[in-house]
Design a protein around this nucleic acid. Sequence first.
DNA 1: GTTAGCATGTAAGGAGTTACATGATTTT
DNA 2: AAAATCATGTAACTCCTTACATGCTAAC
Lengths: 189, 189
Amino acid sequence: MARRAETIELAVLGLLHEGPMHGYELRKRLNLMLGWGRVLSYGSLYPTLKKMLRGQLIEELTASTTPVTRRPRIVYQVTEAGTREFERLMSEVGPTAWEDDNFDIRFAFFGRTDMEIRLRVLEGRRIRLQERLDRVQRELQMTEQEVDRYAAELQRHGVESVEREVKWLSELINAERNNIPPAPAADQS
Amino acid sequence: MARRAETIELAVLGLLHEGPMHGYELRKRLNLMLGWGRVLSYGSLYPTLKKMLRGQLIEELTASTTPVTRRPRIVYQVTEAGTREFERLMSEVGPTAWEDDNFDIRFAFFGRTDMEIRLRVLEGRRIRLQERLDRVQRELQMTEQEVDRYAAELQRHGVESVEREVKWLSELINAERNNIPPAPAADQS
DNA sequence: GTTAGCATGTAAGGAGTTACATGATTTT
DNA sequence: AAAATCATGTAACTCCTTACATGCTAAC
């Protein structure tokens, strides 16, 4: 679990860009954003925030408009250094960008990334998944022994899921190339 | 990352049931089985094997038919206690059974589980996913702010994936109820 | 001969969860 | 009044990965 900390930092920087927030709220947003796997614990988030504070990436917003009745909440906002760090991390194209968690975070903030970078990250991710698929297919051929039915069904389902993921990426890549933003106009009456 | 170790143990016990194996091979099989996430490192597997050896769940197979030319490999086989432990773990129905990794392992070994247990695990897993779905849907309604297009697309895709997963489970549950094993007859000429 | 893959291990270190601790506020 | 949820933190612990260490065997 090497670079998870970095992932959290990136997510925090990105979220705070939408406006100042306190830890508790940050956590909820984060969980909603990544929510499909594990949830982020306080024991993980708060120390990270403190660390980022020390690193001057974020700063405490001394409440001016905050209602005084409430329990003092520590509201954070990004600093200039934090904004620069966010941009640096987002334009960093490489293996870390297409790992599961990292990819999701990056994707969520694509709105603030150049199309060139977006394309490279999407393509990198697609290649990564395709490699997994190829590896599994290759290894399955090697072990030509008859597999248990349930094990086989799990395998089948896994392959199908990844293939669907690849298709999704391909469509996004296509859309990017034709300059079509996602979710063109899903207005509901 | 609480109970991963237990997961590995279960997987090892299950795999060794197919026949004696050495660590290196075990790792390959394991990676193929769970392969869609992280790969299992030696630093994780070997200590686990040693621990299981100490706990008498597995034992070294003193090579009789092993070709003498090879480098001595440590071939393990399950003990009786190991078999019992495997059965105990597999019939343990509860939250641990429907966590992502655990579920996959259990499913892979469903061939050696009673239908009653299979059904309960499948249903538990489905409920768990449905809950996630509901939670996200509920939280999305609360934060009715306009979301970034990419963030929204990620969200949409996530929901779709989980919904597909639920559908898959429902089909499996149905099949179980009608006593139809998965992959009925995919014979290739 | 040298690279690649087989095969087993250990030690250090990082990362994050669990559990604990505390207290305010809102809802029932 | 109690229960739930908001809100912030810390310390211990577990687990796992990374990196290192070693040596055999097959292929090129």
